[in-house]
């Protein structure tokens, strides 16, 4: 269960980092990619380790991971598009 504790600490750290970026007033354009990447990483930890989908056979893991990638990708696209 050390792994779970480690994952938990990473999740908290990434959240704090994203929050800090926003609090520090980093402009939206510069913050977009780091924050989305942190979110992607957090989502992957929850899916693979907490939901324990890593190593599970079949399509489940890829469907859920695909959901995360698609949603974050399109969010990134929409925010990028809004800046231009």
């Amino acid at each position: 269960m050390k792994a779970a504790t480690f994952n938990w600490l990473i999740l908290m750290a990434l959240t704090a980092l994203s929050f800090g970026v926003a609090e520090a007033g980093v402009p939206g354009g510069a913050a977009l990619v780091p924050v989305l990447l942190a979110t992607l990483f957090k989502g992957r930890i929850v899916i693979d380790h907490f939901m324990a989908l890593q190593g599970v056979g079949g399509a489940w893991r890829w469907v859920v991971l695909g959901w995360l990638l698609l949603v974050l990708g399109l969010i990134g696209y929409a925010f990028q598009y809004a800046q231009t």
Partner: peptide
């Protein structure tokens, strides 16, 4: 996903 989307970005 919701937190960064609505609160941060």
């Amino acid at each position: 996903v919701l937190f960064p989307l609505i609160y941060l970005l």
